[in-house]
Amino acid sequence: MRRPAHPYAPVTGASLPGTARLTGAAVRGVARPALVRWLACLLATALVLCGCGISPTDVQDYGRPPVISYSPTWVTVYLLRDGRLEPVKVPVVSDSAKNIIDTLFRAGKQPPKPGLTSALNDFSHYDTKTTRYSDNTDNTDQRNEPDDNLGYRLNVIITGEGRVTKEALAQITCTIRQNKQESIWSVEVTRLFPGTPETMGDRGCFEFRNLAAPGVRLPP
């Protein structure tokens, strides 16, 4: 009995009905032209597939990506140059009294111009309170920010070791008066702690006029 062929045995030309095994002469005489035509068709097919209706394009420049921008509010703060008050413009989130004082303390630690210093670097801004301006302190209306055209006293509360110098008082007072002339009539600085709280009384910027740098006009 003849053994069955292996299921994975290769199929030869002689095993197919109606076919004949190709000899070397047949390959040379017949298969080579067919092979050339087959390769040509394969190349043409590849070119068609590579084209497939999509043509290469250059990189398109659509400009810079969109960004959210805003125009900051600018205020004037007073720093020191050789112990004299010099105004500088700095940006703030808003022109509230608290933000202005925060910006003054921050600008002293990172001056926007060379040669500027601050007498407030040993202190920290703790809080600000506004009260309706009145000589009768028993009839004051305390609030965090003025909301009308009446005059107010601004109490700036700071903390830190050491004595609050005249230059430090001038920086705070003149900065507030420069930006809040219509609503803040006077400035009071209080050092809260450490130690016993100390209040320096009502101040106006004009009393520090002898500290102004040459050519600088201080607010009232």
Rank of each mutant, 00 (worst) to 15 (best):
R2Q: 12
H6A: 15
Y8Q: 08
Y8P: 01
P10L: 09
A14K: 15
L22M: 13
R28Y: 10
V30E: 10
V30M: 04
A31K: 02
P33F: 07
L35W: 11
L39K: 08
L39S: 11
L42W: 03
L42V: 09
L42S: 13
L43T: 13
T45N: 06
L47F: 10
I54F: 05
I54M: 07
I54N: 04
T57C: 06
D58N: 13
Q60L: 14
Y62E: 08
R64I: 14
S69E: 14
S69F: 07
S71M: 15
V75S: 00
V75N: 01
V77Y: 00
Y78Q: 01
D82Q: 14
D82M: 06
L85P: 00
P87A: 06
V90C: 02
P91Y: 13
V92S: 00
V92G: 01
S94D: 15
A97G: 09
K98C: 06
N99F: 11
I101W: 00
D102L: 12
A107G: 05
S118T: 15
A119E: 07
A119W: 03
D122I: 00
S124R: 14
S124C: 03
T131W: 06
D135W: 11
N136L: 09
D138Y: 15
D141S: 13
D141L: 15
N149L: 13
Y152A: 02
R153I: 14
L154M: 09
V156I: 14
I158E: 05
I158F: 04
T159G: 06
G160L: 00
E167S: 11
S186A: 13
V187M: 01
T190N: 06
T190M: 08
T199A: 13
R203A: 10
E207H: 00
A212G: 05
G215K: 09
G215Y: 09
